[in-house]
Design a binder for these strands. Sequence first.
RNA 1: GGUGAGGUAGCCAAGUGGUUAGGCAACGGUUUGCAAAACCGUCAUACGAGGGUUCGAAUCCCUUCCUCACCUCCA
Length: 508
Amino acid sequence: MPALTTTLYNTMTQRLEPVDTVEEGVVRLYVCGVTPQDRVHVGHARTFTTFDVLVRHLRASGHRVVFVRNVTDVDDKILLKSKERGEEPLAFSARMAELAKNDLRSCGCANPDHEPTVSGHIVEIIALVETLVAKGFAYVVDTAVGRDVYYDVKSFGAYGKLSHRKLDEAQAGARVAVVEQKRDPMDFALWKGCGESDWGWPSSFGKGRPGWHIECSAMAQKYLGNRLDIHGGAIDLIFPHHENEIAQSEAATGEPFSSHWVHGGFVTADQEKMSKSLGNFVTVEDVLSRNDAEAFRLFLLGTQYRGPLAFDVVKDDDGRVRFPSIDEAEKRADYFYTTLDLLEGLAAKEGAGDLPKHAMRTLFESTHPKVQEALDRDLNTPVVLALLGDHAKAMNELAGWLAKPKKAPCPEPQLLALAKLALTEWSACVVHVGLFQAAFPEYAARTRARRLGLRGLDEAAIEAKVQARAAAKTAKDFATADVLRGELVAAGIELTDSPEGTRWRVSP
RNA sequence: GGUGAGGUAGCCAAGUGGUUAGGCAACGGUUUGCAAAACCGUCAUACGAGGGUUCGAAUCCCUUCCUCACCUCCA
C-alpha cells in the first residue's frame, strides 16, 4: 500500500492538511448527494465532478476508497412537487433520482460504492433520533399535527466549530423560522410529526418524516462507521447542514465525526450563485445537448475546485443558446483528441527500439509524477491541464518527426519508442482525473453528429462538396476548389489537407 | 451586524517568499498550390490601492477599496 500523500484544504481547521485515515489503507468518503426534485444543474455537476476526481486520483494512486453519496429522497419540496404532478412522492423522487444518476454518469462521474436513500433508512434514522433524545441532546415537542423532535444546540458545546461561528453571534442577524416551542431559535428538527393521512412513517414519536440533516448522520454511520476520513459537499452546506451533522453524530457516538471537511466553490451565472431558488440554473441536460461531456469536464477542471466558477450563457441573434466557455473547452478537447489519434496511428508501426536520451523523453517521463503532485496539492486540476497541454504539444512535435524522419533528432526506432512512452504515460495521467474516457472514434462520431445537428447540416451534402473540392484540387483547378472550401468554411466545416487526403470536421 | 472566499496582462486561470505556469483571442514566422491543423515567437518585468517586514514579496504583516457567498431552502 503506497503512502497517502494527498493534501486537501480542511474547512474545520482552515488549513491545507494531509488526508489521514482511521483505518490504514482505506479512505472513507461521504459526499452529500442530491435532493431529487429537479434536473441536475451545472453547479451540482461541478461538485460531484470534484469528488469524482478525488476518488479517481486516490484510486489511481493505489488507495482503496469507500465512497458514499446519498440521495435525499424524502423532503418537503419533493412532497410539494410530487403533489403538483399528481405523483406519489417516492415514485417522483425515484424517477428524478434515476435522471440525476444518469446525468452525473453522463458527466463522466463514476458511480459511488453506496448510494443510500432516506426512504431506505428510516429505521436507522429513527434509532439515531431516539439515541439523541435518550442522551439528552434532543427533545420532543407536541404540535397541532403530531410530535416533532428538535436538536438542542445548546447541549452540544462544540456547535459552530465547522462554520466558525458562535451561537449568540449567529442569532443576531439570523432569519430562522420561529417555532414557539423551540428552546433556542437555532434548534433544528430531527423528526417532523405529521397527520395520519400525510406522507410519513410510524415511529415511537408518532407518524412523521425525518428532518433534513439527520439522514446523512445515520447513513454515513451505517456505511462508513462512526468516524469518516473525508466528508464533502459544496460550501453552502457548511452551515447549517454539515454543522448539524457534526452535532448529531458526535453527540450520538461521542467520537469525532469526520477528520477532513472538503467544500467545493459555487458556479456563478451573471456574478450570482447558480441555484434552484434563484432560477438561474442551466441543467446538465442543456449543456450536453450543446457540448460534449469531455468538453464540459475540461471546462469544470479548468478552475481549482474551491474557487468560484463563472458560467457564461450567450444567446445568439437567432435565439440559439451557447455556452462560450464550454465551446472553448470543446476546441481544446478536439486538440487533445486529434493529437492522440495522430500519434496512435503513427506509433502503431512495428520496429520500436530503445528510448533515446532526449529532452522529450524526460518530458514524457515527468508528466505523470507532476500530475500526481498537482492533484496531491488540493486537487490542482488547472495545473494538470497545463501539464497535459505540454505533453500533447510534445506529442505533436514527435508526430511531425515520425511523418518526416529526416528532420528528426534521432532514428525512427527511437521515435517509435518515444511515441509508445508518450501514449502510456498519457493514459497513466488521465485516469487520475477521468478525462478522455471516451475513445477517439466515439468522441469524433458523437461530436460530429451533434455539431451537424446544431448547425442544421447534412453530412452527405458536406461529404459530396468535400469530394468535389478534392476532385477540383486534383485537376489543379484551385479557383473552383477554393470557392467550395469557402462555402464549407462559412458553414462551419474545417478542412485539413494531407498527403493521405482531406479530412473534415465541424467546428464546435 | 457575524463568518468565510476572492480581486493576477484583452478574456479565463495557476502560483508552495528567490530562474517561463497554462489556455483562449490577436498578430508575426515555419509548413502549404493557397489554406487549415501542428509547431515556434510576440502580447507578458501582470499581480485592486497604500504602507511595512525582508538581501529579495503576487506570496508574510498592517491599513484600505471592491466583488461574491453563508448566517432561510441550496451542490
